[in-house]
């Protein structure tokens, strides 16, 4: 490559696809087959009538690799369009996490206090455990998880990022 090594950056790609069998395998296979990174990936149907799904994939790499990833995704026959939210302008990125913390006494109280600060909700509770539900950007969730570690963190389940552009215009 004649271009000098570019810095590695994380990008949020929003990919609108036909909701047909094998589409997720196609996308995931493309990433593994060509050696691209997947930091997170979410997928769900967004239009029942048109059979469309939106895949939000967070990937990282130098800008030339990101350009290749977008071009390769665009090449898949069932892909309608690919948007790079990271470069296209202001956007909202959110993740949902369920975090199980077990403990008693002061640690239990402390976990509740921190959950309050993070606006996490307790969605399950026993005398010795909580399950917190938390949404936010990935950094916020990671920070919360870090704080729960000394307080009896048991399990974490995260959805991965979903994202959308700000303002009235569609993607």
């Amino acid at each position: 490559m004649s271009a000098p090594q570019q810095p590695i950056q994380s990008h949020i790609l929003s990919v609108l696809v036909d909701n047909e069998p094998g589409i997720l395998a196609r996308v995931v296979g493309l990433f593994s087959g060509r050696g691209y990174n997947i930091e997170s990936l979410t997928v769900a149907e967004v239009s029942d009538a048109a059979h469309l799904s939106r895949i939000t994939v967070v990937t990282s790499g130098p800008s030339n690799v990101i350009d290749q990833i977008k071009a390769q995704l665009g090449r898949l026959v069932p892909v309608h369009n690919v948007h790079d939210l990271t470069v296209e302008g202001p956007h909202i990125a959110r993740e949902l996490a369920l975090i199980k913390v077990a403990g008693t006494g002061e640690k239990r109280v402390e976990s509740l206090r921190i959950a309050d600060i993070f606006r996490a909700r307790a969605v399950d509770s026993t005398t010795e455990s909580f399950v917190f539900e938390l949404t936010g950007n990935p950094e916020k969730i990671t920070a919360f998880v870090e704080l729960m570690k000394p307080l009896g963190l048991v399990d974490v389940s995260r959805t991965g990022v979903v994202a959308i552009s700000r303002g009235p215009k569609p993607l």
Binding site: S2, A3, Q68, A71, G74, R75
Partner: peptide, 10 residues
């Protein structure tokens, strides 16, 4: 094929 552009040579 747009993916052929800048794939290995800019």
């Amino acid at each position: 094929d747009p993916s052929s552009h800048n794939k290995t040579v800019r």
